[in-house]
Design a protein around this nucleic acid. Sequence first.
DNA 1: GGGGGTGCTCACCTTGGGGTGAGTACCGCA
DNA 2: TGCGGTACTCACCCCAAGGTGAGCACCCCC
Lengths: 120, 120
Amino acid sequence: MATSARQGPYFCGIDAAMDVVTGKWKSLILWELQEHGTRRFAELRRGLPGVSEKMLVQHLREMEEDGLVNRRVYPVVPPKVEYSLTEHGVSLNAALESLAVWGQERIQRIGADKITVEAA
Amino acid sequence: MATSARQGPYFCGIDAAMDVVTGKWKSLILWELQEHGTRRFAELRRGLPGVSEKMLVQHLREMEEDGLVNRRVYPVVPPKVEYSLTEHGVSLNAALESLAVWGQERIQRIGADKITVEAA
DNA sequence: GGGGGTGCTCACCTTGGGGTGAGTACCGCA
DNA sequence: TGCGGTACTCACCCCAAGGTGAGCACCCCC
């Protein structure tokens, strides 16, 4: 099921990490939260053009179960929820750094388009 | 299409890298080829318990198109094909190292099972 | 002479990841 | 008075990723 923590069994560390990062938007969510520290639901939605609310909720729930993000709910009348990275989320992001660099080089190599997100 | 090189557009380096590594067995194939240097088709199949021949062929083709692996065919009577990493494949694997370490720690944390592959 | 190995291809089917659109309870603003 | 924002849930649908099983052309070994 998509709503319970992933738990292997795994061949090696790579697929244990991939398991947690697989999902169309997860790496982007990690990125967003790293860049901005703390973000509200709607801010994340705006920061990831094309994401559906359903997937955003679902991914955030899974990442919470996997211990990557903190979810903080303020019991105020217009709902307010803040998401941030846990220490595991931060370290995962650090581990993704070298992958990001490799990806950048690949983008250059193949001359792929890049989506630029205008700051809100 | 699954049989043409992936080409974005991308949000950032991470998803450019993820794009190339996404696929149930790709990271494991990378791992196998790194560990053994050069492997024949049937050796890879045996090294990845549970992979179907169809998926193995398909993933290898895609990785070839993405410039990650070399495919070398020997025109001998019982077919012989050898796969190895290109320099891009090697550097991708290096970039995955820190992810692998993170994944190992995660396996420890959650106490997940690990699949051990008996050497052939 | 037939069973197993080699490296595939092809056709078919299932699964689930992800998208779409509606509904909700309450508020502020025009 | 009604529209838009906030953070969701729910029902439904679709397509592609992945699995299954067969076939192939040729060989070696028992």
